[in-house]
Amino acid sequence: MPRWLGEPMTDALIVAARRTPIGTAGRRLAGVTAAELAATVVRAAADDVGQAPSEVILGNCMGPGGNVARVAALAAGLPVDVAALTVDRQCASGLAAIELGARLVSAGSGPVVAGGVESASTAPWRFWPPRGDSPPLRYERAPFAPRADDVDMGLSADLLAQECGVTRQRQDAYAAESHARAVLAAARGEFAEEIVPVDGVAADERPRAGLTAERLARFPAAFRSGGSVTVGNSCGINDGAAAVGILPGSAPEAIGRPALRVIGAASVGVAPGRPGLALVPAVRAAMSEAGVSVADLDVIEFNEAFAGQVLACYDALAIDPSRACTAGGALALGHPWGASGAVLVVRLFTQLVRQGRGRYGLAAIAAGGGQGTALVVETCR
């Protein structure tokens, strides 16, 4: 009998995990649409699994609509009877898609390919319709919350850093370290097995060598006078996609295969004015379901939207920042919104499965509107 979706997971195995290089908006991946980016990793994940999935689930925030997951599945050459679903939990969309896919598999579905995609470069322009004599009004993003609580992410991160006592110096030092870690990881080939080249691009564009805290200290505040958040200690605007293949643990194709077992997942809401903190209760809920503590974790991947925001979350969870994002995070690699949560899981797969760095891993991300998603995995061989 299939189990209810809310029950603890024991039977969902991530057996494949791939991503595109992460491009800077307007640069080398600027001509590749969201569906085309997604098709690349959907095809790669399905090939790695060794069979077509029963369903493709992709997160996306700013694409053209029309069910990007379905377009990507068809563009990837999957059979027409493979169902597809696009989900939007803003920046948490990719990780939420994997959570949903894992719960479906654990409840008795067939194999699932899940992940996320974003092409900031090709995102369509959006307009509110005309009202009376007023012309159509172009807007950059949809509302995150009712108007009174709809705070921009940069401003909310700046206010959060101030409220949590995260200094400008600490933010700049952390951002510089993220770039240094990413540059070193790329040089030693850590990303090679997880990246699927796109249009001849095979490496992430954003990481910068020699980006020191002293250089970052020269940037002015970006979101409010006297603030501490700058373009230097914030993520970029990026293009990219990531996907994982999920099999039932009882499937013959999964038996004896190195994989990540999904043992806990949660999506939680908080007050929309401080969305960056939302990953904190999500992490606590996911770890509770998994029955693990921070001390048990071998690999930790948090989305680094803003240095101040992620440092505030580390502090709240009593996580030493030196333990997290050890090959760099979104500050260096980039933040392709709908894909970023799935990128975190690809990074877990590389470190825990491909490199054998331990047993337990955690991925977590916050999203506009005050939501957070977290996923806990266990290595099985």
Rank of each mutant, 00 (worst) to 15 (best):
F349Q: 02
V166I: 15
P321V: 00
I14E: 09
I300Y: 06
I57F: 11
L184K: 14
V32Y: 06
L247G: 06
A213W: 12
A209V: 11
R218E: 15
A97E: 02
A254P: 11
E194M: 06
A330V: 07
A282Q: 00
E378W: 06
L362E: 05
G108M: 08
G269Q: 04
D11L: 00
Q355G: 02
P248K: 09
G291H: 09
P111R: 04
P111A: 12
A342Y: 08
T122R: 11
T373L: 12
A254C: 05
L78I: 00
V112H: 05
T20V: 03
E177W: 07
P8C: 14
S156D: 10
A243E: 13
T40I: 00
Y314L: 09
E289A: 12
Q351S: 13
A39H: 07
A265E: 02
G232F: 04
A69Y: 11
P8M: 13
C313Y: 06
L159Q: 15
R261N: 01
V346C: 13
A161W: 01
V353G: 08
G189M: 11
E253S: 14
G358R: 03
V343G: 07
V299P: 04
G110C: 10
P79H: 07
W337Y: 15
M153E: 04
A102Y: 06
P79I: 05
L247N: 03
G226K: 02
V294R: 12
A76W: 01
L155Y: 13
A330F: 09
A251N: 11
T10F: 14
A222Q: 05
E140F: 06
G291N: 13
S250V: 12
C235E: 04
V345I: 14
T33E: 13
A254E: 06
V82M: 03
S288E: 15
L137Q: 14
I246E: 01
R381S: 10
G94E: 03
A120C: 03
R181E: 10
D152R: 15
F219W: 07
V166N: 00
R89H: 10
A175K: 00
A316P: 02
T86N: 05
A34M: 12
E378V: 09
R147L: 12
D48I: 01
A366W: 02
M62L: 15
I263Q: 03
L104T: 02
R103F: 10
A114H: 07
Y314G: 02
W4F: 09
R354Y: 02
A251D: 14
A161V: 00
D298V: 09
S340T: 12
R218F: 01
R206N: 10
A180Q: 15
Q371T: 12
G245Y: 12
R28F: 00
L184A: 14
G108S: 10
D239P: 04
S106R: 08
A34E: 07
A102P: 03
A278D: 02
L100R: 11
A114R: 02
P143F: 09
P64W: 13
D11W: 01
R357P: 01
G236M: 02
A367N: 00
V310W: 11
A327N: 14
A76T: 08
A318T: 10
T379K: 10
S54Q: 08
V32T: 15
Y174D: 07
A307V: 08
I14C: 06
A290V: 11
G116D: 01
D239R: 00
R218Y: 08
